[in-house]
Design a protein around this nucleic acid. Structure first.
Lengths: 139, 139
DNA sequence: GAAATGTTTGCAATAGTGTTGCACGCAGCC
DNA sequence: GGCTGCGTGCAACACTATTGCAAACATTTC
């Protein structure tokens, strides 16, 4: 699945593969941790903040990335698995946010359980983040 | 436990019980849903934004409330149980965010499970929110 | 090729949340 | 009284998220 080219990833999700978008996908692929808008801004300093913002928004709408809200205060984004549509309870996994290095990691193999909400609570998706210290940071 | 007076709640957590703080606690007690800073601002329009902000911050530091990050973008706060210290994996529960009415509800009786993170990921607390539609909102 | 159309990008500006510095007021204490 | 500590209010600021508008570019149609 990681063998897909950026262009293929975009086309699979019905996103016009522009140069900018392919660069962003590439950046996402290469990063183990989830990426914030500021991260993109920093890396693509020649490009505009708005463009990157809208790029991420498009990606999210088309299901190419999922958004993660951790304690850093700013939203982060990570690539979805190829067949994922980010819905609860099937396609969701837990994330780990390191409060020291402020990185957020996906754990696709740690799915979230089904919760027994009272009648008429219709769940669609969710946001699961455990905060702590990651292996790269001193405890 | 809900029979505690605001003053008692504050004293239990070693917080000086000022008039303002007791009013805020009262507001939190009466609200089923979690409360954002804007909610407080709106309700205590005679009071200052900063005061409310710092009040919530103090409450959080002393363990009187816990912070919830839902998809609304702004942090929300809800009262902790009397004996809670909001640490993972013991004292945490799942929340439900209604994307229609934008309310966030606590489910203290739906604890979050222990996840099997790889070695050296030291978890301390977390943020668990399922998004969907609540019973009060049309689907 | 030129005109028309739609999409992407860049620039400017703005809203809203979160946060800090500083000064004032008030209580308790010497 | 004067000192100290804490809570509150005002002002200002940083940063994220978001929108409007215009230029650039691609695609289609004539």
């Amino acid at each position: 699945m990681t063998s897909q080219t950026p262009e293929q990833r975009l086309q699979t999700r019905n996103i016009q593969p522009t140069a900018m978008r392919m660069l962003v996908v590439d950046f996402l692929v290469q990063h183990k941790a989830a990426v914030s808008l500021s991260d993109l801004e920093e890396h693509f300093s020649h490009s505009d903040r708005t463009t990157l913002y809208r790029t991420l928004k498009t990606f999210q709408e088309k299901g190419l990335v999922h958004q993660i809200h951790d304690e850093s205060g700013s939203a982060k984004y990570a690539l979805c698995a190829e067949d994922c549509n980010c819905s609860y309870p099937d396609d969701m996994h837990v994330h780990f946010y390191c409060s020291s290095c402020e990185n957020t990691f996906c754990f696709p193999n740690l799915p979230i359980p089904q919760f027994d909400f009272p009648e008429h609570f219709e769940a669609s998706h969710g946001n699961f983040v455990i905060t702590g210290i990651c292996p790269s940071c001193p405890a």
